[in-house]
Design a protein around this nucleic acid. Sequence first.
DNA 1: AACATTTTTTGACTTAACTAAATTTTTTTA
DNA 2: TAAAAAAATTTAGTTAAGTCAAAAAATGTT
Lengths: 202, 202
Amino acid sequence: MNDPRPAQAPEKPPLSGQRIRDLRRRAGLTLQALSDQAGISVGFLSQVERDKGTPSLGTLAQLASALGVSIEYFIATPRANDSITRGQERERFAIADSSLQYEGLSTDLPGGTLTSLMIHIPVGYSSELTKHAGEELIVLLEGTVRQTLGDSTFVLNAGDTLHFMGDTPHSFANIGDVPARMVWTGTSPRLIGQKRTPLARD
Amino acid sequence: MNDPRPAQAPEKPPLSGQRIRDLRRRAGLTLQALSDQAGISVGFLSQVERDKGTPSLGTLAQLASALGVSIEYFIATPRANDSITRGQERERFAIADSSLQYEGLSTDLPGGTLTSLMIHIPVGYSSELTKHAGEELIVLLEGTVRQTLGDSTFVLNAGDTLHFMGDTPHSFANIGDVPARMVWTGTSPRLIGQKRTPLARD
DNA sequence: AACATTTTTTGACTTAACTAAATTTTTTTA
DNA sequence: TAAAAAAATTTAGTTAAGTCAAAAAATGTT
């Protein structure tokens, strides 16, 4: 008996009912109270919390909204491998012919969303306008950087930070007279995983 | 005609079919190829990509796996308010009687998951063991910090980073002879939003 | 112990998740 | 340019699981 079904086995729903229960209890709500707020029956909520049922995405969004978190919070994340990087040992990378240099601060965690880079921006460097999914947070450590964000323009000095959604068109330039250095962190998964070229250290 | 249904209107599924299509095309796959890999029918995939149908969480996980991303990538994110902080203007906060001081680097973005803090760690300070949901990334800017992570212990020097899942029990201590400073970034939404006490600047 | 509240279980409905196949559209080939 | 092939969309249908209300069980309060 040949099963013509393709490559992928049916996947267990990647939902952690326990996380819903933990949040609800932390908020001091009964099942009934939360089910009222979320617009579902108390019996179903009980089942969802004990992984005896799986809500549709729409219903999950209602629960997330009632508990004041985003859907991601309920998604079960697989075990991950922790990672350490050493400032003295990290390699710098550049993309294609760009003078911009990067050091990877984060690691590829299965199911993870966090990506972080140390970005070295030469004097006079100016990036292209770009946008993509996810949040971004910039911590400027050294130098002076002009950051555009939609119709806005900001001048960042050392110590300043900027936190924004990455789907707003944005660009940056080093407008100072020393190289700039920033910690860039994003929740856009793996979209920066382009071809990388190791460079010699300064 | 009184509708006894409670507070929450039925929620539109927060799924962006367009993001699935974009990823599929970027990967150079036909609908048929991806549907084979994901174990669903080609017709259904077409409908999902055009928001004419909503997959179950299990099926969505199959799609995510076939495309090599996490489920979060497909979730439609609402508009957010961008935020800037200035190093010279940020207030420091402490929790209860702790000598640990924080500066908020990020903002509360609706549906956002990214939280970032500048943490000032006095000489000799040692935190309690803690754990919570989400990823964490530490960039140590100054000083020497001992970080425990499960059964492992790391000594971080300026420039070093650590990236790990927050549900591993962890703690940190300043074991150097100068105050330490780190950028802490996490994807655990709002779990650090405890009572905060403004402090005078140094 | 009695009562109230909360949670879980149960049996049932219904609708949307998902299919295969037909049709249409787009791309490729000669 | 026409025909063939490939890709995408539409359609009609099945079915199982999302979800319910109510009953039962468990837990909490007095």
